[in-house]
Design a protein around this nucleic acid. Sequence first.
DNA 1: CTGTCATATTGATGTCTGTCGATATGTTGC
DNA 2: GCAACATATCGACAGACATCAATATGACAG
Lengths: 128, 128
Amino acid sequence: MSVDMLLYASTYVNMFFVACRPNDPVQLLAGPLSEGDANELAGILKVLADPVRLRLVSIVASSATGEACACDFTAPLDRSQPTISHHLGQLVTAGILEREQRGKWAWFRLNDQSLDAVHRALGRPNCC
Amino acid sequence: MSVDMLLYASTYVNMFFVACRPNDPVQLLAGPLSEGDANELAGILKVLADPVRLRLVSIVASSATGEACACDFTAPLDRSQPTISHHLGQLVTAGILEREQRGKWAWFRLNDQSLDAVHRALGRPNCC
DNA sequence: CTGTCATATTGATGTCTGTCGATATGTTGC
DNA sequence: GCAACATATCGACAGACATCAATATGACAG
């Protein structure tokens, strides 16, 4: 990913967070999306729209402690260590996962706010 | 899009519909996703993860009659007619929109079941 | 049947993305 | 400091994707 692309992506991710505060949610079904809103929502959906990243999120979310070590992902997902690291980086940049370094190991947990915002963006206005 | 890719995509879209019947929903947060479930969910999320397609869906969903004519999309979205047609085709293939030919015009409406399934897949198990 | 209009398909192109091997960075224990 | 280990970054590559111009398809009017 180029530097320009990274800046582009993080810009929209940040805008998405701002726009998803309770009183100003981006809502797919509430009205025609502006170009900006569509870019924000598409940006975070693109990060989710990958089988490996979805499995990473699901593994973290369903772990007993709510967190998982990077070392636990390589084997079940059948991808190289750089590839897993790349996907984890995408998820962290998008705000879907949070990374915490603990000694040699990197631990990841879900950012509930971020995923809830995406969830609500795809639902009806009066939904949860 | 190649024929192989189309077959690939439609396979996963169909599997997603099957998997999203009420008693067997794909749930991102309910447990580790299998490779198949992850492919299904990623497939339909990929279709949604484009600004133009999100705006198409939002325009259709928020129209007073619940449907919109293809001719209404080109101007506000600032894309060529073939590009709009391409995106509409993707949304129809994925089951998110339904197409109805009425004379010279093509009308599109939302498939509520499809979008609801994606919405629920990203939510908590006890959510709506 | 023919022209006109709306939409779909084709073909081409530049860009983006997932992947991996190689290597760098950073942490721990000795 | 040094060796061992976990993770991140770099560089490269193949495949996928969004886009448009040109063209084809299909429907209606006269």
